[in-house]
Nucleic acid binder design. Structure first.
Lengths: 149, 149
DNA sequence: ATTCTTAATTGAACAATATTCGACTTTTAG
DNA sequence: CTAAAAGTCGAATATTGTTCAATTAAGAAT
């Protein structure tokens, strides 16, 4: 047994997919070469960033989902990008936004369960520059990544 | 001119993509039939929901991004699913979660600009059952859909 | 341990799809 | 109105996905 699954999931999370030109052509009732031409243009212009898989996160050990509202400490207040970009490398984090309002950063996090979340909050999110966090735990996801669940 | 682009974007947003078996096989240094077998299993088990494109949302008229914290009115308080599922059909909404804490629903919305957001908030999100909303406007996205920007 | 059953891996043959090319058409700018 | 650029599309080719059958590995039961 080669344990292909986790490596596969790792790649499909962030790319290694491609549009189905023939299927799209059929659906739109246009020649596949026309579809091909238009897709390449979208890619060259950077309109399409990449193609990737959307998972049932419960099945890949990421069934616990949570929004994290973050306050930065006065010293880091003017520099949310540094902390945000460093957090970006964690695959548990779906999104990071620098926001207006009462919190400087808004994160969306996926981990296995509540225990894993506690550890993640303690070990990864809490750090120098992060003053306070507020967690909004998702009971149920109705839509995610533009896809209704 | 056939105006292929918007129709194409519409399809690629929610599917019409597929994994690149040959590329994955090369990357993982495994035979492509082995990769094929493992991918089909992920699909059959429902671990992979679908394959889709991730866009530069500024380039598809959705450059304005915002989190919306929603309070439901007392009458709807016990039934966040009805409102959430109805909202799910709008393609401007990236995600909808039923949450713990001070707000029953958390939405993430992408529209063209601030004016469009005002209209969307007024015409779509505000409705019977929605008592109050709080908007956290994203100044800058550092990560989105698990992909660093 | 040994057998049996099921799951996983793999190469070869085949089917389907993507890509290139060139001709033609449409759009745009001056 | 004209020339250049962008878009459409069929035919040929290159690449990739899929099926199949054989082989190996893993797990369960006696």
């Amino acid at each position: 047994m080669k344990n292909i699954r986790p490596r596969l999931v790792g790649l499909l999370r962030q790319g290694y997919c491609t549009p189905q030109i023939a299927q799209i052509a059929k659906q739109l009732k246009e020649p596949s070469t026309t579809i091909h031409y238009n897709i390449k243009r979208l890619e060259e212009e950077g309109t399409v960033r990449l193609y990737k898989a959307v998972f049932d996160y419960k099945q890949i050990e990421q069934g616990f989902c949570c929004y994290v509202l973050v306050n930065l400490s006065p010293g880091e207040y003017g520099n949310p990008e540094r902390i945000g970009k460093d957090l970006a490398k964690y695959q548990e984090i779906e999104s990071i936004d620098i926001c207006t309002g009462d919190w400087e950063l808004v994160l969306k996090v996926h981990v296995k369960d509540q225990d894993a979340y506690f550890e993640f909050l303690k070990n990864v999110i809490s750090r120098k520059g992060v003053e306070r966090t507020k967690s909004l735990v998702s009971f149920k996801q109705l839509k995610s990544e533009f896809v209704p669940v």
